[in-house]
Design a protein around this nucleic acid. Structure first.
Length: 926
RNA sequence: GCGAGAAUAUCUAAGUGGUCAACAGAGGCGGACUCAAGAUCCGUUCGCGCAGGCGUUCGCAGGUUCGACUCCUGCUUCUCGCACCA
């Protein structure tokens, strides 16, 4: 007999699986599932493991159910991250090198090559395939591709041609985070600081100052009527600059920013902040006012100069109050212009005084400012003399008016600062021209997506709300980039197609990925793809025969049945791909379903490569075995729940597999004659088959394992206990071994293959038929009898534990027929509260008096306590309790080591016998 | 702040109106086996109880109901997303 050796099982299986999962169109019904392909910039950890093992278990399940299953894999290598990584490695950045050398264990000679970004993704793509294979993923690797393959680029170009023709691709202007040193837009992952910063749109209110303008930046242009002064910082150096030909006075920083935002800026002279103080400026909407000094004015905030509305801005109010308390500018009074319920005449004053704020350094100032802004925006109304409009309306009206008539401009700025690039430089807002967008805001397109989403199977169903919301909320998506790897944008080849936008319909590409390689990418015109995917015929298509083969592959496999992905992709990728599908493919080729996963934790903390809190998948497989890793990941939580990897739990999973293995090895040769209890075991097995199948149909890997593993194991324990002494199991057990091995093999395929051979199964277990429950083998009566017996055994045990005497004999007293009658009447009645009265109308019961009412009351309680699957059959037909216990007498005597008597409760053996009820005999221990 | 979910015993976690002191697993404790360890098996794991029982529990506070872990309202805490990017 061979030892339990996962490593050996793995070697054996790999040898047999080499080309086993390559999948071609056939006569069988297909099942096509895909999972979001990885961006291979580092090594796989156990969290990735689950992402790809869940679909594998499902793939293996459907394969055994007789479907032609396709599970393909590719690598997403477009985008910017590896560019940054290779730069950092070239710059000998310690942190990056440590991550790759020590955590990901990249050999030095390979690491040296990483200065070229493509080698990084190529290296890890190879690693991914190796580790995925080690995990036993049943992938058709012939279809592997990367998103920079020339043929793939042609496919993307074809897709974009359609999107463009459908009017979904539009050109626009877009403010981005921009690093002036790198001369590139900056993504989230390239920020040292300020990753939460948002770009906000300020209105520059232009105050006339001699021959120049002083622009002040504000989010609240409607408050212009309440401006009492400007604020300038006396310690800051300002500049006079020609902006688009007009003289502006702004901070030095602001001049730089404006140059990035569609303005020509020519600096003429420097002006010290203190020279501006007490100077007069004017604006048509508020007249002449004075520039006052304030230290809180930040030269790096927008224009570096602000207008002061002390009636409505707490900062302005306090700054003015401070100056006035020092005896200056006493003549300036706050000018209220907005009425807002609950904030008195002058909201800023009201709020500051209510909060008891002493000076501008108070930490509550920001919160207070926010509070007043929100209150005024949601409930405030301008005074009648200023138009009387609600603030939310007036704000946009005034802004538009100012731009139109009073020389105002727009300036973009971050709401949180500083924002710092990884290179150490400050990030600015730059307006990009020639920016292309996917018009996800298009209501017609949205509607098509919503309509189709309604037809899709979403797992778990709760995610539907989030999808619906995402579709409603999506705005236009900037879909071109200036840096990174990827396909050139057809209408502006200096730009690249953005990485999320080139990954929306690649599931269709898998169907032809292994064939299209044979065709020179130069021949891959849009007409070629039109033919393959849409069936549009056109003249002189190249390589027509090959195209027909691909057309057939596509028609066979598409649409995919299920797409798997982690839940964080709902708000982008998973929704994008529906947009693109509905735009390009006909209705019968639109995706059928999606399964959304939870996230992974490691020892209770979030997994994160950068924090070093990861456990590499390869190490896990080497340490515990692939089957152990698979079974643990599938069994610890359902796919959509978050899971937690803990080594000690994984170890016990390994023991379970070992126990399963040795049980099968032990049982497979049993050859005894069948006993009654075999019928019970076989009957129970059918329901385990059914429940495991149901669970996997619903992607519930945990539920399936509970049934297929613990469910069967528990029954087997009872079976062995019930087996007569000196009896080995019957040959029925061989069937059980075969069924059990097949039920578990999607989870533990390596052990499965090995055992399948030991059981002399035909071919590979990976392709063996999935067990089907046989209704003929289900016998509810036997299960019910066994239930009665096991409940009685439990009762005896619990009594024995309590009374702590050494028993000499046990008597089981069975309830008389009239109690069964009462039980049935109650169990069948709709209203269990009044049924007692009905029963007592019967003369036979009346004669028994209190004894009968007591029995009725006890039966009611009992019926409530028993599970419905017990009560329902009992209501129709009682169990022959005599027969059950007499057949089990030897078993009971063996269990308890004393003589067991079975008798009728009414034979007067003991007072306790009176407590006997149907399905709950009285127990007398002496 | 906005949107989507979640909260159950030591931990993971099942449970959508009476099958519930609450499936299952892990861990702990006790025992059997053993020279010993591991593995395996058995028992126990809210409190009380020398007869199969009783009491108090499922984030917090209320409510609906004959009856609530399950339904409703409010609160608290946690996770995910909120975009120019994998």
């Amino acid at each position: 007999m061979s030892e339990f050796d996962l490593g050996k099982f793995e070697d054996e299986a790999h040898e047999q699986w080499i080309h086993a999962f390559e999948s071609n169109p056939s006569n069988l019904e297909k099942f096509y599932l895909t999972v979001a392909y990885p961006y291979p910039s580092g090594a796989m950890h156990v969290g990735h493991g689950r992402t790809y093992i869940v679909p594998d278990v499902i793939a293996r399940f459907w394969r055994m159910k007789g479907r032609q299953v396709l599970y393909p894999m590719a690598f997403h290598v477009t985008g910017a991250p590896v560019i940054g990584i290779s730069k950092r490695i070239a710059n000998k950045d310690e942190k990056t090198i440590r991550l790759y050398r020590d955590l990901y264990k990249v050999p030095q000679n390979v690491l040296d090559e990483f200065v070229d970004p493509l080698t990084i993704v190529r290296h890890f793509a190879g690693e991914y395939q190796r580790v995925m294979t080690a995990c036993g993923l049943s992938i058709d690797w012939r279809r592997r591709f990367t998103t920079v393959d020339p043929t793939y680029s042609k496919f993307i170009e074809w897709q974009w041609k359609h999107l463009y023709e459908a009017g979904h691709v539009i050109k626009g202007v877009h403010p981005v985070r921009y690093c002036t040193v790198d001369e590139n837009p900056v993504g989230d992952h390239d920020l040292l600081e300020g990753d939460k910063a948002e770009v906000v749109k300020f209105t520059l209110v232009m105050f006339r100052f001699g021959d120049a303008f002083i622009p002040t930046a504000t989010l609240r242009p409607e408050t212009i009527h309440g401006v009492t002064n400007l604020w300038a910082n006396p310690t800051v150096v300002y500049v006079k600059a020609l902006v688009d030909g007009k003289a502006w006075i702004v901070s030095k920083e602001a001049a730089e920013k404006l140059a990035l935002q569609d303005h020509t800026v020519e600096i003429k002279e420097e002006i010290n902040g203190k020279d501006l103080i007490d100077k007069k400026v004017s604006h048509p909407l508020c007249g002449e006012i004075t520039i006052l000094p304030a230290e809180f004015v930040d030269p790096d905030m927008a224009s570096g100069l602000v207008m002061s509305v002390p009636a409505h801005a707490p900062f302005d109010y306090i700054a003015l109050r401070d100056l006035q308390q020092a005896g200056k500018y006493k003549e300036i009074k706050p000018i209220p212009l907005i009425k807002v319920e609950g904030y008195g005449e002058i909201p800023a004053q009201f709020a500051v005084e209510k909060a008891g704020i002493a000076n501008q350094m108070d930490s509550r100032m920001d919160a207070l400012t926010q509070e007043i802004y929100s209150a005024e925006f949601s409930k405030g109304k301008l005074f009648e003399k200023y138009g009387g409009k609600p603030v939310r309306v007036a704000r946009d009206d005034v802004a538009a008016l100012m731009v139109e008539k009073y020389d105002s401009a727009i300036m973009y700025e971050f709401d949180v600062r500083p924002v710092v690039c990884r290179c150490g430089n400050r990030v600015r807002v730059k307006i990009l021209h020639d920016q292309w967008f996917l018009k996800y805001s298009d209501p017609i397109w949205k509607q098509q997506v919503s309509d189709h989403l309604g037809n899709m199977a979403l797992v778990p169903p709760e995610v539907r709300a989030e999808f619906d919301r995402t579709v409603g909320w999506l705005k236009d998506w900037a879909c071109t980039r200036r840096v990174g790897l990827g396909t050139r944008f057809p209408w502006d080849t200096t730009q690249l197609i953005e990485p999320l936008s080139d990954s929306t319909i690649y599931m269709a590409y898998y169907t032809i990925a292994h064939k299209i390689r044979d065709i020179d990418s130069k021949l891959l015109t849009p007409e070629v793809f039109d033919y393959i995917f849409l069936g549009k015929k056109s003249d002189d298509l190249p390589e027509k025969k090959k195209l027909d083969v691909m057309r057939n592959e596509f028609l066979y496999w598409y649409p995919y049945n299920y797409r798997f992905s982690a839940k964080d992709l709902i708000s982008n990728h998973l929704t994008f791909q529906i947009f693109h599908h509905v735009s390009i493919f006909p209705k019968d080729k639109l995706p059928a379903g999606m399964v959304v996963f939870g996230m992974g934790l490691l020892n209770g903390a979030k997994m994160s490569s950068s924090k070093g809190n990861v456990f590499l998948l390869e190490d896990a497989v080497a340490e515990f075995g692939a089957d152990t890793v698979r079974m643990f990941l599938m069994g610890s939580a359902e796919p959509w729940q978050d899971f937690d990897w803990r080594n000690e739990l994984v170890i016990s999973t390994k023991k379970q597999i070992e126990r399963f293995y040795s049980t099968i090895m032990e049982l497979r040769n049993a050859s005894g004659e069948p006993h009654d209890i075999d019928k019970w075991l076989v009957s129970r097995l059918q329901s385990h088959i059914e429940r495991t199948t149901d669970a996997l149909n619903n992607f519930q890997t945990r539920q399936a394992l509970q049934e297929a593993w613990f469910g069967i194991e528990t029954d087997l324990k009872w079976y062995r206990r019930r087996l007569p002494e000196n009896c080995e199991g019957s040959h029925e057990l061989h069937t059980l071994c075969s069924v059990w091995t097949r039920l578990l093999s999607p989870f533990i395929p390596f052990t499965g293959e090995h055992l399948w051979k030991e059981l002399a199964g035909e071919g590979l277990v990976s392709f063996a038929p999935w067990p089907v429950a046989d209704k003929k083998l289900v016998s509810p009566r036997i299960e019910l009898s066994e239930e009665l017996l096991s409940r009685t055994v439990e009762d005896i045990e619990s009594i024995m534990k309590l009374i702590q005497i050494t028993p000499k004999a046990i008597t089981i007293a069975l309830a008389p027929e009239w109690k069964h009658e009462i039980f049935r009447t109650i169990a069948q009645s709709a209203d269990r509260t009044t049924v007692i009265k009905e029963i007592m109308k019967d003369d036979r019961m009346k004669k028994r008096g209190k004894e009968a009412t007591d029995a009725a009351r006890q039966c009611t309680t009992l019926i409530h306590r028993l599970p419905p699957q017990v009560v329902t059959p009992l209501a129709l037909e009682p169990v022959n309790e005599h027969a059950v216990f007499e057949a089990a007498q030897a078993f009971l005597e063996h269990e308890f080591g004393v003589p067991v008597h079975i008798t009728d409760a009414e034979k007067g053996v003991h007072v306790k016998a009176a407590t006997a009820l149907p399905f709950k005999p009285a127990i007398i221990i002496e």
